[in-house]
Design a protein around this nucleic acid. Sequence first.
DNA 1: GTGGTCTAGACCACT
DNA 2: GTGGTCTAGACCACT
Lengths: 131, 131, 131, 131
Amino acid sequence: MLLTINLRDKRPIYKQIVGGIKDMVLSGELKPDEQIPSVRQLATDMNINPNTIAKAYAELERSDILYSAAGRGFFVNPDLAKAYRAKEEEVKKTLILCVESAKKCGIKKERIIEIIEEIYDRDGSQAETEP
Amino acid sequence: MLLTINLRDKRPIYKQIVGGIKDMVLSGELKPDEQIPSVRQLATDMNINPNTIAKAYAELERSDILYSAAGRGFFVNPDLAKAYRAKEEEVKKTLILCVESAKKCGIKKERIIEIIEEIYDRDGSQAETEP
Amino acid sequence: MLLTINLRDKRPIYKQIVGGIKDMVLSGELKPDEQIPSVRQLATDMNINPNTIAKAYAELERSDILYSAAGRGFFVNPDLAKAYRAKEEEVKKTLILCVESAKKCGIKKERIIEIIEEIYDRDGSQAETEP
Amino acid sequence: MLLTINLRDKRPIYKQIVGGIKDMVLSGELKPDEQIPSVRQLATDMNINPNTIAKAYAELERSDILYSAAGRGFFVNPDLAKAYRAKEEEVKKTLILCVESAKKCGIKKERIIEIIEEIYDRDGSQAETEP
DNA sequence: GTGGTCTAGACCACT
DNA sequence: GTGGTCTAGACCACT
């Protein structure tokens, strides 16, 4: 499982892990009911304390991205409807804060959409390649 | 000066103040070279610790939004070119994080633009109304 | 023997088995002195580790629900008076925790009884139908 | 603030704290916007590790019982509608598990209601006394 | 092997 | 002073 944490990122490590795995699940990169690396395994792989991984996994379970059972491990929740809706809400909330402030400062709507197009249409370093 | 801080907001108070004043300056609500309330004055008005206000003002000065004259207080920087460019950079950086993740999760570009339009075109509770 | 375990259920698997078999015995679905599937048999049928089944059977024996004959397997205890009393105690203990907390939070007695009626009078997906 | 943890209780310490504070808030024992003891303070008072208290407080904030801000502390959420609805759901969920099993084992509805009445109408060691 | 809880202690940002 | 994050390490229940 490819997960990188960025030390220059202001978000705490566990939030970066939450974001990374959430995106992998919602993008289908991780399959329904697939088992993900154990807390200890990922902790070893990423050289991070197990408590930090556990904190991230717990949040992913609360967000209906994963489900788990002690003694068995963590698995991808096959029913992602709720998580998907929450993701869209999260995106919307971020955009509201960002766009309202931008608007107030005189950044035109057209400029914002231009930026969106530019971001969306470029390849994206980790994005899926299309055939 | 109308500045409201939201105690439920997860952003620290000083960041909320920085954001609020930055937006007021870049939107022209505060005029070039206009003096803004003193640290003590604003601290009293908002019932906030003066250290918190001072921290916000210091950051605004570093961002070329305000300038200070020792013993006389803080004033709006009349040369906002740099600050304006930084604001656009900041908006762009936020949009990159948000949009790349949204894209990966399968949220379509059209949906994002739809949300932007919706946010931008509504009145906005605290937004300036144009004559 | 129809026993379903729910991997999403937060109760450990062996507890789910204990609960399921206990209910089947106390409801008369399993007859006095009837032999139940061997540990290995049930482990195979349910695709569960034999240790887990063995743990459940051991607890059922301690609770006087089953008895075992070395080398011959597990059987339904025909004398269920003790187990029945323990079940009522267990129900009562759960209700005390739940109802006292509900009461403290202002949930009215009438509302609780209403919920009980609703639960009790509906068919229950896995409940036995009476002829 | 009166909060006792019971070592014989099977629930983990942090869950007992969550339950205790939730009940105090939903019963009105703690007032809207009232500040509750700091993580460190309660940790000292109860002789429990601060991390354990912090875990409980975090869950209470996620449940809309409390709100917080780093540097200021935790406060009782004045808008408890959501939390109250969740509490009723929680009670209902517990009752379903308990009552369905009891029913299956032949415990009569009248007996269950009798138990509820008995629990509800007795004083309750920590219950509010009525004038 | 798996996750969950808890303690102890450090360090940081914010007020 | 406040909470938030992270590490380290122990111990437990469950599979």
